[in-house]
């Protein structure tokens, strides 16, 4: 067995266990099936390249979030990866609200559509927050102080509230 394949086994073990992290990032930053597949592969390749220098100084999930978000935000340039974000009451939201499905599915779709309207940075922060990462961990991934994480989260929540509130009332009534 070569040293590459020896290293690859523990790497694949980690990815198999934590691949949900990559899927979440792909779902937020790529908006077509093809882009999601491309982004998944790119993140996987970047994780594999960086695996040799991972010394276990942070949690494996923190490291994976870092690599995945860095790849999605800076290294992956696709014109179709982001929908228009100018109109908060966009047709995408209305269409999602009108789609025939269960309330839970509708609300989840609404949440994803609403998050897609945020900036790249805001999406990263709110995803980490929703994934139950602490302010310290979010700060470690993003490179800002925990206090500033709190400030950003409050602003993002308020933005999301503005986007989602009317639609949620409609779907629940």
């Amino acid at each position: 067995m070569t040293s590459v394949s020896k290293n690859q086994e523990p790497f694949l073990e980690i990815i198999s266990t934590h691949q949900r992290i990559i899927h979440k990032v792909c779902r937020l930053y790529a908006h077509t099936e093809d882009d999601r597949a491309d982004l998944f592969q790119e993140i996987l390749l970047q994780l594999w390249r960086a695996f040799g220098s991972f010394k276990g100084e942070s949690k494996i999930s923190t490291w994976m979030y870092r690599v995945a978000l860095n790849t999605a935000i800076s290294g992956f340039r696709k014109s179709s990866r982001r929908p228009a974000t100018t109109d908060l009451d966009s047709t995408a939201l209305i269409a999602a609200a009108d789609a025939p499905s269960s309330d839970a599915e509708e609300e989840t779709q609404l949440l994803y559509k609403a998050i897609a309207m945020l900036s790249d940075l805001e999406r990263a922060i709110i995803m980490l927050y929703l994934e139950e990462q602490s302010y310290e961990e979010i700060g470690e991934v993003i490179g800002i102080t925990p206090n500033y994480v709190g400030v950003k989260i409050n602003r993002i929540k308020s933005k999301l509230k503005d986007i989602l509130s009317p639609h949620l009332r409609e779907t629940r009534s």
Binding site: R49, A50, R66, V67, N70, T71, L121, E140, V141, G143
Partner: peptide, 8 residues
């Protein structure tokens, strides 16, 4: 790519 987002 392993650094935090700001430094990366």
């Amino acid at each position: 790519v392993s650094q935090d987002l700001f430094h990366s």
